[in-house]
Nucleic acid binder design. Structure first.
Lengths: 206, 206
DNA sequence: GTCGTTTGCCAACAACCGTTGGCAACGGTA
DNA sequence: TACCGTTGCCAACGGTTGTTGGCAAACGAC
């Protein structure tokens, strides 16, 4: 299964006093950067190792040596932290605004999330990672501010549905009214939705 | 470009008095059904013509003859009509409920939409069709009920972001709190969001 | 300088893909 | 009957993919 990835330090003795640099680290980083770009632009299947290697100006076989397989490369490239701010103590009515603005900022500045989203449609591993990101990171953050502990997972799921829908229509599908909108305007429209999902009255089927 | 698809009637004379049946129609339908299933389950790239042909129990070359190319097959399989009901005249406060319920019903009963959604992440043609479906069908329906003509496209885009986000988290990512939820409960939670996007006060950035 | 490790490239493999052309069987028409 | 368009399968093509093994250069430790 695991292809004996070269991921350990030289035996016996360190190369330098500062432990964390090898000559190949620049190559590793270049591969990772090119991989994120390609996965974000093309999705998992269409992003080929050959194209990624060409972008990083190295041989395709280097990708295999450093990351073991295409799946391994993707796993490394799709490491993602939502970097959610602390939500407790945010004044009533400001939580939605804070969250929507944070998501938009986070996505504009880091294409990893778009790569993960594009890949998750066809790659089972990417979908699972997406589930983990939202269940773990968003899930626990929401649990700390939800008025009802039992309802927290559903509230988090609803927030995820709106935020991922926003990301899908804006960055992947590029639906014009959403893709061209000013971020501040999107925040103004969507914030009340998120606020209600987080702290509003539990909805009951009629 | 077009591969001379065999899509016309026998020359000179009809085979039968009823014009619309050929012996191959059953095969065509079987291909289309298998294609929708595969595209929905695997996305555009991973759904191979060979696999679709195997599901339909015919030779892969038949797919080419009847649909010209893989792109042509997808175009035929991803024909989709939202079948939106008439929205004008719906009493205030009931529009969101009606729409959310309609979308959920439409998606549970027809996997075409999921196929389109999965494929749209990596296939440019699928993304364009998705844009068209929501701009044309949802766009015009929303324009008839929006209080401000100029704001209608944005309102439609926001509704699309929430509805597609729901489809993504429920049917593609299968995020547990959304995928396992009772449809009625989802309607209760999401309907007010859609109602506000459709007819609420225009949001202004602060 | 010498030796072992690291870094990189090249060439190739096996598998799979969409696509094509040809050929046999069938089924109505005359 | 002979004929001709339709339906279907088979075998193969050219291209691309992930992946592998070997070899040459660069490098650091001694």
């Amino acid at each position: 299964m695991d292809a004996e990835v070269n991921e350990r330090w030289p035996t016996v003795v360190d190369m330098t006093a500062t432990p964390a640099t090898r000559r190949s680290d620049a190559t590793r980083a270049a591969i990772l950067r090119a991989a994120r770009e390609r996965f974000a632009a093309d999705g998992y299947d269409r992003a080929t190792i050959r194209a990624i290697a060409a972008d990083a100006r190295i041989d395709p076989s280097m990708v295999m040596r450093y990351y073991g397989s295409k799946e391994g490369l993707f796993a490394a490239a799709a490491e993602f932290d939502l970097r959610l701010p602390e939500l407790t103590g945010v004044p009533a009515g400001r939580l939605g605004e804070l969250l929507v603005r944070h998501f938009l900022d986070r996505w504009e500045g880091d294409e990893t999330m778009v790569a993960l989203l594009r890949a998750a449609s066809t790659n089972a591993g990417a979908a699972e990672r997406m589930r983990d990101v939202f269940a773990d990171q968003l899930g626990v953050a929401v649990a700390r501010v939800a008025p009802d502990p039992a309802g927290a997972p559903r509230r988090a799921g609803l927030v995820a549905s709106q935020m991922l829908g926003l990301a899908l229509t804006r960055y992947v599908l590029r639906l014009p009214p959403v893709a061209d909108a000013d971020p501040a305007e999107l925040v103004a429209w969507v914030a009340p939705t998120v606020e209600r999902y987080l702290r509003g009255e539990p909805a009951t089927p009629r």
